[in-house]
Design a protein around this nucleic acid. Structure first.
Lengths: 123, 123
DNA sequence: CGGAATCCGCGCGGATACTG
DNA sequence: CAGTATCCGCGCGGATTCCG
């Protein structure tokens, strides 16, 4: 079974930008083009590997453009496509909502992900 | 290390509703209160277990309200809180964006997730 | 009907090392 | 600098079973 099509627009949208850090990448690229290393430093808490993979997916989705400058040292710039810009436009209100309610969200986050539950790993 | 706070509002927002099907649940609850079984049938492609877990997280986030009616047969109704309503409000444009570009998104989805790569797992 | 519990596979994602 | 490749843990999430 190939997992039927999207059930609604929200499903599709979340699927394309809901990845762990894709939203963040899109957000920062919305501010302007960034090089790979700049992204790595800007989007904190992401490994090189993940950054590459996420970028490739965003590129495959047509949201991000990858500009390679063949030179030494190598330089690769990532930027939003028109499609990508259309997305962050509707992402704006969401980000603002998150900002306005950040305290509340952070507080409840601990309830959802106790993080250090672990402990008793008695076999 | 406890994974520092959210880096921006978008980060927080996606974290709270970016789960596999949380957006869908929120979306359908936005249409009105639903019972557990109704949600299970409405949000297609989700297991009982996941539906329960996702609902608990949404509840812990203060987005969803869980109303238990102690009776036989049991009846539990889920609905959006005020907070939840404020979220789906900004989620509206995102869902619309996804709907408008669904074909494009579905097409590029295959490039990102070949889905049936292996499959044939002859036991 | 609405869950909670258990088992378990598998793929996400981190760390590291190597290349052009 | 900008990746790619490999290893590997662990937690997400599906299937099944039992309970109130």
């Amino acid at each position: 079974m190939q997992r039927q099509s999207y059930t609604c627009g929200l499903d599709a949208a979340i699927d394309v930008m809901g990845g762990k850090r894709k939203g963040l990448i899109l957000f920062w690229l919305g501010e302007g083009p960034l090089r790979f290393g700049e992204l790595r430093r800007t989007v904190t808490g992401i490994s090189e590997r993940m950054l590459t993979l996420q970028l490739r997916e965003l590129e495959a989705s047509g949201l991000v453009h990858r500009e390679v400058h063949h030179q030494v040292p190598p330089k690769v710039e990532y930027s939003l496509t028109e499609f990508g810009h259309s997305l962050i436009e509707v992402l704006g209100p969401l980000g603002q909502w998150g900002e306005e309610n950040m305290e509340r969200l952070e507080a409840s986050r601990e309830a959802r992900g106790p993080a250090g539950v672990s402990g008793s790993a008695a076999p």
